[in-house]
Each structure stands twice: as C-alpha cells, then as structure tokens.
C-alpha cells in the first residue's frame, strides 16, 4: 500500500495516523507539494485528476479521498474502527466523516492562508471554523454526559481520526482552541492511544514516556 504523502498535510497525516494506530503497513512516497507543486504534475494528475493529496494506491485500487482511505485501512486491518454494525452507528460515522470535510474547508483553509501563503477570505474561513468547532464541542459534551469519550459508540472509530488533525491544527489558522474543554479532553484521549504518531504542530504527550528523573521500577 503506497501513500503519496506530504509531511505538512493534515489530510495525509490522517492516513499515517490511522495506519500507525492500527498497525497497518504503509509505504510512504513523499510528494514535493510545497514549494514544488508536484501534485499538479503529470505523474500525479494521472493518478488523481483532482490534483489533491493524499493518494492511496493498493494494487489496482486508487483512492483520493482521505475518508475512504480510513475506511479501507480499517476494513482491511481493524474492522472495529468502522463502528458498530447498527444503522445508527454507521450513520453517525458517515455524519462525522462528512463533517470532517467542513473542518478541512474552514480550518484547513484558514491554515493555508495563515501559514502557507494560500488565498482565501480568512475572516470567513475562521468564522466557519469556529462554528464547526462549537458544533463539535457540543457533540463531545453530550457524549461526556453519557459517559462516552469518542464521537460514536464506546470505542474510537475512523470518525475520530478523520476529525482530529484539522481540529488539533486550528491554531495554525489563528483559531484558538482555548474555549473548548470537551474538544481538549477528546484530543488528549486520542493523543494517548497506543501507536499515536505526531505531526508538526501536534505535540506528543511527553508525560506518557518514563520520567527521566524517577528511577525505573526494579532498577
């Protein structure tokens, strides 16, 4: 399985993160997105005429939507991550995968303008981003009321992975995460999952590593 990847792309990170969390093998093929614009070159347009990355290639299968990639990885290696097999659960997962597109457009758009010289109406993108974060905060608060941690059901699903990166990187687009306690707790839970990997702008939880000042047990 080959992932056409860019280290600073939150959408590519979704797929890297998913693979790391479930232990799926992934061969990375770095794309010179910035400054080289390789994604708009002939070779990559032949794979994905939309000119976007990531692109996931597995044999004859070519995927160009990150949500589909998460579903494919989970389907192959960790079907539990697709959610429970009930109509409600399946629908809710789809709901959040679609919601993740709004996060990409708004938070990702603001991030491109603020960080990588992208074009766009920053204020409109930020307003849309804050509206989406408030919606997510309210939903996660509702889950906390029910004793839940994740967006859908009792355990983490591809819905959480799909929404996490652009939310965590909202400050890159000058959108503060300070007002959202439930989002903070959800991100912390995700960053605490075994196999979690970071990307620039999303720090690991250092406290999960052994404290160098405390002698190891049995030492």
């Amino acid at each position: 399985m080959i992932l056409y990847d860019y280290i600073l792309s939150p959408s590519c990170y979704k797929v890297r993160l998913m693979a790391a969390l479930i232990g799926a093998p992934l061969e990375l093929r770095p794309v010179d997105f910035h400054p080289g614009k390789e994604h708009l070159g002939e070779d990559l347009l032949a794979l994905n005429p939309a000119g976007s990355i990531p692109i996931l290639v597995d044999g004859d299968l070519i995927l160009s939507e990150s949500a589909a990639m998460l579903a494919y990885l989970a389907g192959q290696y960790a079907p539990d991550w697709l959610g429970e097999e009930t109509a409600t659960s399946r629908a809710m997962v789809q709901q959040w995968l679609a919601f993740a597109h709004r996060l990409t457009a708004a938070l990702g758009g603001a991030r491109l303008v603020e960080m990588l010289h992208g074009q766009g109406d920053l204020e409109a993108l930020q307003t849309a981003g804050i509206a989406a974060l408030r919606e997510l905060e309210a939903a996660l608060f509702k889950r906390r009321l029910d004793g839940g941690t994740w967006l859908v059901g009792e355990s983490i699903t591809i819905a959480d992975v799909a929404c996490f990166p652009y939310v965590a990187l909202a400050p890159d687009g000058s959108i503060s995460l300070d007002p959202y306690p439930s989002i903070r707790l959800w991100m912390r839970a995700l960053r605490g999952q075994a196999g979690f990997v970071e990307m620039p702008g999303i720090h690991r939880r250092h406290e999960l590593a052994p404290d160098p000042l405390t002698p190891a047990e049995g030492a």
Binding site: R144, D178, P181, S182, R184, L185, R188, E207
Partner: peptide, 14 residues
C-alpha cells in the same frame, strides 16, 4: 475560572 470536570488529573489548561 473552570469546572473541575474539565481538568482531570495530569492536565493543564489556559
């Protein structure tokens, strides 16, 4: 300034 439940053990908030 905050609700207890928003700051579980081992966390920091602004």
């Amino acid at each position: 300034l905050a609700l207890s439940g928003d700051i579980p053990n081992g966390t920091v908030i602004p």
